[in-house]
Each structure stands twice: as C-alpha cells, then as structure tokens.
Amino acid sequence: MDISYSLVANAIVAGLLLGGFYAAVSVGVAISFGMLDIVNIAHPAFIILGAYIAFLLNDTFGVDPIVCAVAVSPLFFLLGAGLYRVYYVAFESRGRGPLPGLAFFFGILFITEVVLVLIFGVDYRMVKTSYSETSLHFGQVDFALRLIVPFLVSVVMVVALHLYLKHTFFGRAVLAVAQDPLALRLMGINPIRIREIGFAISIATAGIAGAFLVVIQPVQPSIGREYIGLVFAVCVLGGLGSIYGTLVGALILGLAETFTATFFGPSWSPAVSFGLLLLALGFKPTGLFGR
C-alpha cells in the first residue's frame, strides 16, 4: 500500500472532524459518569432517540436537523430529570450502589432500542440538508461540510458547557456535588436537585448529539451499542469529569479510528475504540487528564 501525503492529510482532517462529533457524543457521559458517578450506559440510546426525532422533524417540516435538536433539547432535559428521579428513588436513596443501577440503565437502553424498532423499523434513515453533498477543497485535502457543521456546533457546545460548569453558580454546584455532597448540604443547597439538573443536562447533550449523528451517517436503532464503548473510552482516556479532557480524548479516538479505517479497512474501526478503552482501563484508568 502506498502511503501518500494526501491520504494521510485527509485521514487527519477527517479524524479531527469526527473527533469533534465524538466529543459531543461523550460530553454527556463525562458529566453523568465522570461527575455524578451515574453509570448511564443508556446514553447512546438517547443519542439515537435524538437522531430519530431530528429525522422525523426534518422529514415532516423540512427544518434543519441541528436546529430541530437544539429546539427539542429542553424536552430531553425534562426526560433526563424524570429519569434521574426514578433512578434516585429506586437506587440512590436506598443506598443500593451503582451495580443494580447498571442493570436498570441496560434495560432502558434495550427498551428504547426496541421501541424505535417497533415505530420506525430496522431500515437505515438519513436526512438531507443543504450542506450534505458539498465539500471544501484545499489542495488535495477535502473538508466535507456534513462533518464540519457538526464539528463546529459540537465544539461550541463543549466549550459552552465547560464555561457554564466553571463559572456559573449551578455549574460550580454540579462540580461540588461530585466532590462532597455533604458539604453542599451544609451550605443549604439540595444535592439531589443539583444532581438532577446535572443529569438532565447530560441527556440534553445526547439529544443534540443525535442530530449530528443523523447528519453524518444514516441511523438504525441498534447502532447505539457501538457508541457505548466509544463514549466510555473517550471519558476514560480524557480523565473522568474533565470536559476539555473529553474533547482531547474524543479527538484522539477520532484520529485513531480514521487511521484504522484508512489503512486497514472500515470493518476494523469498531475494535479501535474498545481496544483503546480496554488498554486505558488496564493500564491507566485515571486517563490522560485525570484528577
């Protein structure tokens, strides 16, 4: 195989753009798993749900899927708040630890998937936007707009979340609840309420990431599973609970996957994220930027 300059350059560009999207996919888990210690393995299911809602709205009203996703994100916020309530009442308030909660979220993942299959069937669905087919060219390097638009929006979202968590009262309370819920209670703040909001934000990001997904590639109810390894690999690589770490982890993973797909064939790329995850868990579980 001849490794030409343009092939490598294209792989780097595509990898970074994909990485930006992966950051949007994983940032919710960085909040729920990294900060709140809620192992929400159903996160990808909500991404797929977001993708289908964006598809449905785009199909009926012709609105841009990303605009739709931002518009319906309050609904995802409420869904997240409701889900946390159930989780809290059934598991946290009884001190049952995270393991039964895992089974709970696994069930939620499965239910969401099956409900989507029952409503939409197992066909692949795709949206068409004004920018789906265009690419920019710089020399021999192509920039596909259907990757650039999600990349830009997702970087904006990740940076905004970082600023929100670092500089607002609520955001700092979310960070605080991760460290010491008792101290928070002594300050006269209800940690349950803060955790609820944190979890709701994480689900809202899943809804928006779903719209990116449906812009980038066709979706089908069961593809969510492939993202489970990805989101946790990104979070573990980036160090749990660090938003910028998540961004860096996502870019690394995007590059690794694109290079594997370019040089070994796309059928190998799912092994990359899970392989990196297993390696990270086995050798450096605190991640690159761990606290």
């Binding site: 393995i41 492939e226 489970i228 390894g229 573990v236 392989g275 995850l277």
Partner: peptide
C-alpha cells in the same frame, strides 16, 4: 465494579469485530 461492566461490553464488541 462498573469499569468491569463496561469492559465486558467492550470485549464483546472487540470479539465481534474480529
């Protein structure tokens, strides 16, 4: 414990790819 749970899922998908 929950890292173990995630790793098992990772193992299944790795094997699937192979």
């Amino acid at each position: 414990g929950h890292f173990f749970a995630i790793a098992t899922l990772a193992l299944a998908i790795m094997l699937f790819t192979f």
